[in-house]
């Protein structure tokens, strides 16, 4: 199975949290990778989805599973999905600045 390409870069911030910057589309082929990246990072994990163009229910499932350890920055396009799935009620979601 060819996985959909996904770039993950990890950064440590001054306050000890982890910032995971994701770039690409998240679907069933690469959601496991996302999960792994989140698990291996030390909490709290700030997920930067500003450059994520697609997030489907497989990706959402990963986020729900790790909800207690993550915060999210997402672009405008993803906001409806995050809202209707109810994720915004569990974790902090911020809108990424346009650009």
């Amino acid at each position: 199975m060819t996985a959909t390409p996904l770039d993950v870069s990890t950064a440590r911030t001054e306050d000890g949290s982890t910032r995971l910057t994701i770039c690409g589309e998240i679907d069933m082929t690469n959601s496991a990778r996302l999960a792994e990246a989140i698990s291996s990072a030390s909490a709290p994990v700030l997920l930067d989805f500003a450059a994520v163009e697609y997030l489907d229910s497989a990706g959402l499932a990963v986020l729900f599973a790790q909800a207690d350890r993550i915060e999210l920055v997402a672009n405008r396009m993803l906001l409806p999905v995050l809202t209707v799935s109810g994720l915004t009620e569990l974790i902090s979601v911020r809108e990424a600045p346009a650009g």
């Binding site: 199975m1 060819t2 959909t4 589309e25 679907d27 069933m28 082929t29």
Partner: peptide, 10 residues
Amino acid sequence: ADAGQLAPVR
């Protein structure tokens, strides 16, 4: 029916 097709279809 292959998950690898999803990205190109999209």
